[in-house]
Design a protein around this nucleic acid. Structure first.
Lengths: 216, 216
DNA sequence: CAAAAAAACTAATTAGTGTTAGTTTTGGTA
DNA sequence: TACCAAAACTAACACTAATTAGTTTTTTTG
């Protein structure tokens, strides 16, 4: 009789969730069956239910854990007394490091959250919206202080988040491209895209719609 | 007996594929059943098979049509005699306009392609890689000409593509934010992120790994 | 070493999957 | 109006899904 072997820093439950995460990432949540998960562990599907409630619970746990990590980092940054662009950079770097350390889980939280059941789905979407609007708030402050180029902050937030989230190849850390180098290139491109190069912006016409700055 | 009503510019087959696309986008390919598709049209599931081969064929058709559109635009741009940064901008704008005009289909081609059956899957992945490496080639040329900031072109390509692909809210064209304004903001941020602001780059140390430029 | 708890197993249930076969209805044309 | 192809239908098949019940095996513990 095969057994789930708990690792040093993880219960049997964690082993299941990690194996599930790996499959959810590769094949998607719906296309992954409990039998698939069980098989990669070397156990029969019903045995999993000694450790977890349901398939959906696994997804919930993955998504909310990641959301919690991002939210708690954002809170720290908000309380710090840095220039806005440094705050943004810190957030960007945190997102990148999450991609390196928790790639599978972040991917699932980005791409498979739709399949969470209610009321978790609504909760998750609210957290997401809240996170983004706080980030947009930071950017707006940067624009007001002329640190950040006058761009629509909501567009900028989505640009940053999806740019980072879309780099599928973060696993390449094993390859020749150093993770650190990757990070520097990415940060540079995004921060330079935001930075206000012309300190006097009288030549750029902007329009304010619903309290947000747009280029006309 | 309900019927599928062909529209002026689309056969019954096209109606099915569009309805399927809408559901694939909302719930994902695997979570969408043939019965779901049939129901939104107002017909029984087996009736669909008078017009299509299989569920997988629908996905193939969506993904490859989108891939074809992108590839053919890229070819045009490559043949044009513009400065590199203008070429890049043209590609960015094309991607954005595709998001506005073909949002559902682009989304599926970006997020659901995994579920295509072989040998289509391999073909699709090859086309994807080819597209991206040609784009990276353009960027490398821009770097060589000092038009583009010395960034890893592969990272830049993924940044651009996923930034655009990740803006989920392209449907907001119905809202107050004008599509045109959205486009200008996005283009600005991405192009400024690429532009070489210091024409003399002797102060930035770069390293070349496998023929690609990195910031050290 | 015996008893209790944890974790595995097999078997079965209920619900849904894509798809096929065979049949009926519909709509246009001779 | 009679015919015929297109397009719908119903019924069913062969699988696969998540999960539950009941039982057996393994591990922990007193």
């Amino acid at each position: 009789m095969a057994k789930i072997i708990p690792t040093k820093n993880g219960s049997r439950r964690d082993v299941i969730i990690q194996s599930a995460a790996s499959l959810f990432k590769e094949k998607g949540y719906t296309a992954t069956s409990m039998r698939d998960i069980a098989e990669t562990i070397g156990v029969e599907a019903p045995s999993l239910y000694n450790h977890i409630e349901s398939k959906k619970e696994i997804l919930n746990e993955i998504c909310f854990r990641i959301a919690r990590l991002f939210t708690s980092h954002l809170k720290e940054v908000e309380l710090s007394a840095e220039p806005i662009l440094n705050k943004i950079e810190s957030i960007i770097r945190f997102h990148i490091s999450m991609m390196l350390l928790e790639y599978q889980n972040v991917y699932i939280s980005d791409h498979e959250w739709k399949h969470m059941p209610e009321p978790f789905l609504t909760d998750f979407k609210n957290q997401r919206r809240n996170y983004r609007s706080r980030l947009a708030g930071l950017l707006q402050k940067g624009i007001d202080k002329n640190e950040v180029s006058p761009i629509n902050p909501y567009v900028a937030v989505l640009t940053i988040l999806s740019a980072i989230g879309g780099i599928e190849s973060w696993q390449v850390s094993s390859k020749k491209i150093e993770a650190k180098s990757l990070e520097e290139n990415m940060v540079k491109m995004l921060i330079e895209g935001l930075r206000n190069h012309s300190m006097v912006n009288s030549d750029i016409k902007t329009i304010s719609i619903q309290g947000m700055q747009f280029i006309e």
